[in-house]
Design a binder for these strands. Structure first.
Length: 105
DNA sequence: CGTTTGACCGAAA
DNA sequence: GTTTCGGCCAAAC
């Protein structure tokens, strides 16, 4: 088990700790996992999650509250659906309001 | 090997 | 509001 696995584990544990009905940004998750400035690593990790993962990956959004991904994309639609299902409303151009971010922002 | 590419971010223009 | 840029760095090419 290398240091890479350790980092991944902490990131996944952090995502897993995001409360239901709230969201966190990629950078927030990275910082919380002790890896400030490594937001992209979080994104890459979540992208590579197996289809049936139990992790609440849908609670991770961009720092401005928008859903990550380009134009189309299954993951985007699925993420919106999951968020709405647990009470997270998307305002304006599909952005999650600041108040819903984990521990302010 | 070198280069490009991101489920990103914050500041600057 | 927007695009650009430097920072980040593992995987894909």
């Amino acid at each position: 088990m290398g240091p890479d696995d350790d980092r991944r584990m902490r990131i996944l544990a952090t995502v897993d700790a995001i409360p239901r009905g709230r969201v966190a940004s990629y950078g927030q998750v990275a910082a919380e996992a002790g890896l400030p400035g490594r937001a992209r690593l979080v994104g890459r990790l979540l992208r590579e999650l197996p289809a049936g993962s139990r992790l609440p990956w849908h609670r991770v959004v961009r720092s401005d509250g928008s859903i990550a991904g380009r134009g189309d994309g299954e993951a985007m639609t699925e993420q919106r659906r999951r968020l709405v299902r647990e009470g997270v409303t998307l305002e304006g151009r599909g952005r999650v309001p600041r108040e819903r971010f984990w521990r302010g922002c």
